[in-house]
């Protein structure tokens, strides 16, 4: 066991020496790896933030029933009764005055409303159906539109669904991008290790002649790939964190100008750890492939 640990410690130390022996080359590799990892990570973060931003909008599958302007208490009771009998889920009545008050909370709107002779908003019912399958919700909306005194029925979730689809496409593109850059990272490590193997061909040959196993030959390169990927991952984390920190202030300002309350969420520890871990893993894979090809040839 002690020998095993000694061999690993020695291989790790060799890998660190190799990284430090050519600082410029190491730095360039880290920049390439860091950039390759940071792009999909940044994209993922943007999508995550967009999802957060969309979190304050009406819940998916929400139906608004707008009453005719002349609708009175009797009409409201009639709709309530029908909703109760239909057992559609939960609902609440939003009187036109309450809707107006909510509208006034949005910056700039009170000035516009002040120019209007009377409250232009209708009374409304907001329904959250139990059955949220798209076809069930659409069927309900059609039923509601036939009810007396209901002027207009709106599926509030429509744009959220479109947004969800957009996010899904975005996520898919990020995954494809990550795959592409992950492959590039493996190739970068593969080539770096290949050049190292060529430079150390004599040493490898001698080592094998005097009793080195394939594992002994592989180990320093595997550590090198692992460390290079790990450091590249850390570099990517620092790039994304720095980018998020730079954008955070101006974005907060922009959102505040629109009267919203939202701030950019940076990399959390789990994502930062994953990014670093993925870098290390891909580096190790690149090194493993490169040494395997060499050992098969020799």
């Amino acid at each position: 066991m002690r020998r095993f640990l000694t061999q690993h410690a020695s291989a790790f130390s060799d890998a660190v020496h190799k990284l430090l022996a050519f600082p410029l080359g190491t730095l360039l590799s880290l920049v390439v790896i860091g950039t390759a990892l940071s792009l999909p990570a940044a994209g993922w973060l943007v999508l995550d933030n967009l999802r957060d931003l969309a979190g304050g909008v009406p819940k998916p599958q929400q139906i608004s029933l707008f009453m005719v302007p002349s609708a009175d208490k009797r009409a409201f009771d009639e709709v309530e009764l029908r909703l109760r009998l239909a057992r559609v889920g939960s609902w609440r009545f939003v009187p036109r005055d309450e809707a107006l008050e909510r509208l006034k909370a949005i910056e700039g709107v009170p000035e516009i409303l002040a120019t209007l002779p009377k409250n232009p908003l209708p009374d409304a019912f907001i329904v959250e159906p139990e059955d949220i399958r798209p076809e069930a919700v659409e069927s309900l909306a059609r039923t509601f539109s036939n009810w007396p005194e209901v002027e207009h029925v709106q599926l509030d979730s429509e744009w959220v669904r479109r947004f969800d689809v957009f996010l899904r496409i975005g996520r898919l593109m990020i995954v494809m991008l990550a795959g592409l850059f992950g492959g590039a990272l493996i190739i970068v490590t593969f080539n770096t290790i290949r050049l190292q193997i060529l430079a150390q061909a004599d040493e490898i040959e001698v080592a094998r002649l005097i009793g080195a196993t394939n594992a002994f030959v592989r180990r320093p390169f595997q550590y090198f790939g692992f460390l290079q990927g790990l450091l590249g991952g850390l570099f990517a984390v620092s790039l994304v964190v720095a980018g998020a920190a730079l954008l955070s202030g101006p974005l907060d300002e922009l959102v505040a100008l629109y009267g919203g309350r939202w701030s950019l969420r940076g990399l959390d520890l789990a994502l930062a750890g994953s990014l670093t871990g993925i870098g290390a893993l891909l580096g190790w894979v690149g090194a493993q492939l490169s040494v395997a090809v060499h050992l098969r040839k020799s």
């Binding site: 020998r3 000694t6 020695s10 004599d202 040493e203 005097i210 009793g211």
Partner: peptide, 19 residues
């Protein structure tokens, strides 16, 4: 190995053996 000094050449077999 001509890129190493005499002592490092001698150390190689023991490094392989994990001493």
């Amino acid at each position: 190995l001509f890129d190493r000094n005499a002592l490092d050449n001698i150390l190689l077999p023991m490094k392989i053996a994990g001493l």
